[in-house]
Each structure stands twice: as C-alpha cells, then as structure tokens.
Amino acid sequence: SGTGAIIGSYVAPKSVWLHAMKGKGLEISGTFARRSGAVFMDLQFTNRALQVMSDFAIQFNRNSFGLAPAAPLQILTPLAPNQSTEVSLPLNTVGSVMKMEPLNNLQVAVKNNIDVFYFSVVYPLHILFVEDGKMERQMFLATWKDIPNENEAQFQVRDCPPSPDAVSNKLQASNVFTVARRTVEGQDMLYQSIKLTNGIWLLAELRMQPGSPSCAVSLKCRAPEVSPFIFQAIEMVLKN
C-alpha cells in the first residue's frame, strides 16, 4: 500500500491524541501497530510549551482486552521547546480486564514534570489478531454449525480489492486467514478465521460478486458483541 511500507498488519497514520491546549503544551500523536507478533503504541511527543519537559511516564486504565505497557516509556532525554521525539511503546495483553464502552476504548494517563494528562483512544481490533489464527478446516465447519444463527452479524464493505486473491492476501497480512474458498453461481466465497489475543475465535464468510467492488461479510462468534469491532478492523484493512 503506502510507500516503503513493510509487509505486515495494517498501521493507520498517527493522529493527535492529546492536543497541546489540553496538555499544557504537550502534544501526543499516536497509532497502534502489530509487528512480529507483538503490539506497539507508536507515539510522537511534541513540546509546544516554553519550558523543558522531562520525567515522562505512561499508564493505562483497565480495558476490555487487558492491554498494558510491557515496558516503561523510554524518553530518556528532556524535551526542549519545539522539539519532538518518537517512541514505540511495546504492549502486552496481560493487564487487568474491564469491559469498556465502546469495547475498544483505552483510557491513557501520561505524566511529565508539569502535570498528569488523561485522554481516551480507540484501537483497531486487528492489532489483537494473533499469528496462529488459522483454524483447522474440520474445526471451522463444526464451529460454524455450532454457533447459533442469532450470533451471526452481516456487514458490507464497499471499495474492496478487485479479486478474491487480493482480498485474501491483504487480510492474511493482518492475520485474517483463509480456511477455504469456493465459487458458487459465479460468487466467490472466502471462509476465514481470526483468533484474538484473549482466545476468542471469529469465523467469517466473505462473498464477492465478480466486477462488483463491494463485499458481503458475515461474522460468527460466540461473543457476538465483538463482531462490529471485528468488522471495522476488516474494513480498515481492506480499504488500505
């Protein structure tokens, strides 16, 4: 996709999470990434105040998937006025769990020598799609049958990649695995599996009409409240 992009899970561009106005001059931009099986919060800190900033630290509130910093925030030198620094904070998913609204909401506290600042961000769920998420075919069929119809959610993605191969490859780079593929009456059907860091499995059926840029996505999950967020992540991956 983007220039110089490495192959891997899709990473959205950084956006401003803490505006300087609310951070007494501290501006924080960030995004979430999954690289080599690990989750990162990629951050940029900018000092827009007139004084030097130092003594940075970060903490998360309890959240739906137990996301927590896996190491202290490494900003080792003070940040002079108008200076920026980038830092990649490794995360794990063994923190305290509390169901958030929305499910992918994360409350963050950052402190420096001036004050403590709080902000909320939402993370795309595909950062939690694990590398061993390809379900065995037999297990897929049994699970698909076993999950009741009322746990199935249906969505549409417009502006999909133009072929089932392109869709499958793009999704696989973000750990959405194609378990089987069929063509029925000219429609391409992809059966896919996703496993989240907390062990929840998602089963997906993607249906594409040749020549149509849209794709019908059906999701089956034993925890159906996650399906809308899985769909958002799939849509984000397919459109980028």
Binding site: Q138, L141, A180, R182, V184, M189, Y191
Partner: peptide
Amino acid sequence: ELDDGLDEAFSRLAESRTNP
C-alpha cells in the same frame, strides 16, 4: 491428497449459503 470429506463439506456450506 486424502479426501477427508472436508472439501465436499465446504462446497455444501457455500451452496447452502448461496441458496438457503
């Protein structure tokens, strides 16, 4: 390749979804 019946099972699933 061993025919384990799963190919056929996926075909039936896809057909049932297209023509419920």
